[in-house]
Design a protein around this nucleic acid. Structure first.
Lengths: 219, 219
DNA sequence: CCTACCGATCGGTAGG
DNA sequence: CCTACCGATCGGTAGG
């Protein structure tokens, strides 16, 4: 197919007043259209993976034409990064409201860990939780630059677990080295994305109980 | 500039009669070329993911031209499946030689679990271990038909853990429900693919010790 | 296993 | 945000 048929009717006398919108920013804040794109992108990235999801898929899911996502995001990578950043932001916010709630510091270390685990599961498996799983399982698709930027947030999130784990290690309820214990515990939690189905089997509560009784000695 | 570089030694009189080889089979067993394709595919699938790896990448890594992988595998999907099947086959073989070794049944349940964990880590993180990680992290890319076929092998592998875990549960060394415990434990182990680096940090031995002391009560 | 392709698709863009 | 594209790439194949 060559360039032969140009429809002559598409000639508007009134051009756009000030040219096209700036393209130098990664995204524009045009309200809910951008949010809709993010939510559908998160869902599709989670279900099919980043590479197997086309920008056309995302546009169609949001009710747009194929080129329109690029009005809101300058590239597919930028969309992925926005999804992941939103995921980390919500995970961090959730964790902070947990640890800063009144009475948290009065709890036993075991109960503190239980709250952290429950919050982690909630943001990972609860309703509307597509952003964090995408961050966990698709970060390989991210350019190195942005991966490092995300690593800062991840490091902050992981460091929030250390005081509790140190305390449990000191009291003998956690015997494994704290650094390895944190990696193994978070691994067990993160892997639930692969098999947990809220509509059948165990509840989030039972899952949290099982994790606690698996990790802690309390004897 | 094409028909002059045919090495005369590959011209076997009994080789191929004429025409092209049958295409009805998924693969042909032509020895090490097929194995080389599999190994390079496993490595690339693991590092970049299935969708981000092109059949041209694989061909180049194996020193072939872009169309040649399709002489050995009828599709990119067939290559992925072959990698995964090889992964599961080696994992099962490893696990069976562990549990059927002389003296295994005389060990304590805790020591039996330790052997299973060590074998799992070996096949997951040891030298030349690209096949199992691909199976763990890329099965979403597999057509449903073949995914179900793999699920049989996976179920068999997972069921091998149940006797040991049941025994530990009965003796109080494992308090979590066995079904959930198995999922959480294997999750913790499988996630090590994301962070374990054999060239720095802990050794496989230390990793196994940490996992055992994290999961078991031994009190 | 190579050469020489093809049809389809995809990320992205010009211009409005 | 839509229309109408393009250049590049990719899985796969015909024929030897």
């Amino acid at each position: 197919m060559k360039s032969d048929v140009v429809p002559p009717e598409v000639e508007s006398p009134v051009k756009r007043p000030r040219g096209r919108p700036r393209k130098t920013v990664d995204e524009r804040d045009d309200g809910n259209r951008r949010q809709a794109l993010l939510a559908h992108a998160a869902q599709l990235f989670r279900r099919k993976g980043f590479d197997a999801t086309t920008t056309r898929d995302i546009a169609a899911a949001a009710g747009m034409q194929s080129g329109s996502p690029f009005y809101h995001f300058k590239s597919k990578d930028a969309l992925l990064y926005a999804v992941m950043e939103e995921g980390m932001r919500s995970a961090l916010a959730r964790q902070l409201t947990t640890t800063q709630a009144p009475g948290y510091s009065d709890l036993s270390a075991a109960d503190q860990l239980r709250l952290l685990v429950a919050a982690h599961f909630s943001v990972l498996l609860g309703p509307g939780s597509d952003f964090v799983p995408v961050m966990l399982y698709e970060s390989r698709a991210l350019p190195v630059r942005q991966r490092k930027s995300l690593a800062l947030l991840i490091g902050k999130y992981e460091s929030l677990w250390l005081p509790v784990l140190n305390s449990l290690h000191a009291s003998g309820q956690l015997r494994a080295p704290v650094r390895l214990a944190r990696l193994l515990i978070l691994g067990a939690l993160n892997w639930t994305v692969q098999w947990f189905d809220p509509k059948k089997g165990a509840s989030l509560q039972e899952l949290t109980d099982a994790a606690m009784s698996l990790f802690l000695k309390e004897c």
